[in-house]
């Protein structure tokens, strides 16, 4: 049973990595750091709701570390990690208030927190508090991207959840 969960998580990690690399190779829409969809996040949410928090956490850390190596952007590792950890903390704290039906709300909250974490790291590293000007832009981008990834995860889970839990529990 545990093995199944682990195998399942690793498959999902691979998928998350692929989507991460694909997204990183698409030219960014805006020149502002952090404005992106974050498709890889669908898999974190998916794992959290279908398998469990420890597995989702493992997926997140693996995805950030290996993803940074794949895309050759080790600087972004720090930013991703800061944002990722902050939003994951919020995710497990608030999960019980949001049933599957409202997963997208949680996703929005996490995406906004994620961007905030990244921005704060950037302010610390560059020593430029003026970067906080970007907060409104990143907040809007977080709301939109979070709703998108949340809905994706939610719709997929709605169709697959029963089968997954059946598989995992046998």
């Amino acid at each position: 049973m545990k093995t199944k969960k682990m195998i399942f998580t690793s498959v999902l990690t691979a998928l998350a990595l692929v989507s991460f690399v694909i997204e990183a190779s698409i030219p960014p829409l805006t020149p502002i750091y952090g404005v992106k969809l974050g498709i890889a996040n669908i898999f974190t949410l998916f794992t959290l709701y279908s398998i469990g928090a420890p597995y989702a956490f493992a997926l997140l850390i693996l995805r950030i570390t290996i993803g940074s190596i794949f895309t050759g952007q080790l600087v972004s590792f720090l930013y991703s990690l800061a944002g990722g950890l902050l939003s994951f903390l919020l995710m497990i704290l608030l999960k019980r208030f949001f049933p599957l039906r409202q997963l997208w709300v949680l996703s929005v909250l996490c995406a906004v927190t994620h961007n905030l974490g990244q921005l704060l790291t950037a302010v610390l590293i560059t020593q430029t508090p003026q970067l906080m000007y970007y907060l409104p832009v990143l907040a809007v981008s977080g709301i939109i991207a979070g709703a998108f990834t949340g809905l994706c995860a939610q719709l997929v889970l709605k169709r697959l959840q029963k089968q997954i839990s059946k598989q995992l529990n046998t």
Binding site: T126, T128, Q130
Partner: peptide, 12 residues
């Protein structure tokens, strides 16, 4: 409101 930023080389 939008400074030019290069995070890798920490230039603003």
């Amino acid at each position: 409101a939008s400074p030019i930023v290069c995070l890798p080389n920490k230039i603003v």
